[in-house]
Design a protein around this nucleic acid. Structure first.
Lengths: 345, 345
DNA sequence: TTGAAAGCGCTAACAA
DNA sequence: TTGTTAGCGCTTTCAA
């Protein structure tokens, strides 16, 4: 274990002295060693090792103007924030990708409307090189904030507004919600179902709208009485199912916009003695772990790779940060979905 | 003084020039304005405003040796990490407190054993002023890591090992698990229950052990056949309940070490037609939202203020960072618990 | 290929 | 109370 004089840590100067080279050469070696002769590289490396040298991050940032940190902004007023496995998996993916690129994750939790100022200030304060944000609602102020802060930002989920004409489009990563929904509904059709209902999510979330659009793509002659609205929670799914059953006792299938609502719907069907999938087939969305596997019966659903989405968000941002001014901005990414067949449909 | 070129942000130099003062005075104003005459303060403030000046964080850190950032280290191999409402609430509290003190939260997720090196390096790399860590298991490597990194750290949950003699004790924040358990069990006694069982958590977690100790405090003549071990999950609670019922069909109460397990236990009791609380009274721990309220019957449980604990962790760390070398280290904090009576006991 | 030297933007002695 | 000045530790021209 290298000596660590309490208080002051060794500087590059010390390393250079120990290796018998100039500070400039030491710096070159520490930053990859390009254009430095082998023996000198080795000498410096040894000195680094012996001294236990760690570069001073602030000093480096001061001259390079790169902080090596990225903000993850989460604006979700509800308690859900983290307990939502969605976020947690997304963050895992982000964390992995950032770590692999020696970039730090600064977490910015928006606690209330008054926080937007604070966030804006922080984002434009040069603390981070870029930001990753989750924009779930159409009226989300986050896109405006990051734009105002003038900081490169990648969104998780398609933002709900359209950019002004001539304005650069906002890069985002999202699952193929519409395509996934289409596959789900088509599957029910292939099963011979004829009155396929839909339990949708909140209309102010783009993912909910996209899934509804996918449903409509297949069921062009869709009957509005077959559609009910939920809030992506178990309870709201149960309520919506009861509502649909009342309105359309003849329905023979339901495509539910997420697994949580699907589990609520299944409960209601079970309570009423309606056999799944014999009488009513059910397909969910997300393949949420462990919910989807443990429903009764296990849920057929549309899987999306949430952790992968997080990783992609980070990768996209890192790429934007790396193109030093030149080159076109990378496009948004839509990740594929796949139908996972279990027992409910 | 030439206007700052578009793109690069205004420096303190520019502010000083605009206000017609020296850079030092401008700096003083930006940092609180102590000992600067009112009119000058105003001038500088106006210049700051007009120029949209934001201090360069790296430059400031370089000289003050304070980063204004704190790491939150989470080492939890399982997926649970964030989906566990425990963490999410704790982080909320931490975030609130740090934000109130203009301190940033850098999230460090430990993805695997190989990550410990990376974390150690980061922690000793001067990126952050201190760390908050969650140490849940007795064999947790985190305490050793933060100690090796020589960085002030506050733990969430009592660490499982005892400091070497002469070594400074590790500051931590924890709920009064033992006291809470005592109150819970005493409540069951007061109800006239005589064969009070216990479903405990994993023995490698101090919270589980402390709750078991509390149970024992009241039931000095405790019968080992009345104690079963779970893993803090719904399923494990159900299993443990079944096991207890088999071993001791005569039990008339159960104190369960957390609400998740309690909900599993309630399910088993319901399935077997055992009336709660008439035949078997049940008390949980945590008052986890929304679990405790929505069990059937609603759960009597021991509440702890998890968000408050997070806030305390941050406050404790901030205080340690503020005492500039002198003064005694603040002690650990044990937060109170309280019994919340609902229908199950 | 290497080194000398000029800052990056800020704070904090020390002087005035 | 205000200004002058010397760095904080590093990268990066520019010369050698």
């Amino acid at each position: 274990m290298p000596e660590q004089s309490p208080g002051s840590r060794p500087t590059l100067e010390a390393v250079a002295a120990r290796a018998g080279v100039s500070r400039a050469t030491a710096s070159r070696v520490v930053n990859g060693g390009d254009g430095v002769r082998k023996p000198l590289v080795d000498k410096v490396l040894r000195a680094v090792d012996e001294l236990g040298y760690v570069p001073n991050h602030a000093a480096r940032t001061l001259v390079t103007r790169r902080t090596g940190a990225v903000a993850v902004v989460i604006a979700e007023p509800e308690v859900r924030i983290f307990s939502d496995p969605f976020f947690s998996q997304q963050i895992r993916g982000i964390s992995k990708e950032l770590t692999a690129h020696d970039t730090q994750l600064v977490l910015l939790l928006v606690e209330g409307p008054g926080d937007f100022d604070r966030i804006t200030r922080y984002l434009s304060g040069g603390h981070v090189d870029g930001a990753l944000a989750f924009s779930l609602h159409t009226d989300d102020p986050l896109p405006a904030i990051t734009r105002r802060a003038g900081i490169p930002t990648v969104f998780g989920g398609r933002p709900g507004w359209t950019a002004d004409p001539g304005e650069r489009a906002v890069p985002y990563v999202d699952a193929d919600n519409r395509g996934g929904a289409r596959v789900a509904v088509q599957h029910l059709r292939d099963l011979g179902r004829e009155r396929i209902a839909h339990i949708g999510g909140p209309p102010d979330q783009t993912s909910a709208m996209d899934r509804l659009d996918g449903y409509r793509d297949v069921l062009l002659d869709m009957d509005p009485t077959l559609v009910a609205e939920g809030a992506f929670t178990v309870e709201s799914g149960a309520r919506a199912m009861a509502e649909l059953l009342e309105r359309r006792p003849d329905l023979d299938a339901v495509f539910v916009a997420n697994d949580l609502m699907a589990s609520g719907a299944l409960r209601v069907l079970r309570e009423r003695g309606i056999a799944v999938p014999e009488q009513v087939a059910v397909v969910g969305f997300d393949d949420m772990d462990p919910v989807a596997k443990e429903t009764d019966p296990p849920l057929t659903t549309v899987r999306q790779d949430i952790e992968g989405q997080g990783r992609l968000m980070a990768r996209l941002l890192l790429r934007i940060l790396d193109r030093t001014g030149n080159g076109a901005a990378p496009d948004s990414v839509i990740t594929p979905t796949m139908l996972v067949r279990r027992a409910s449909a």
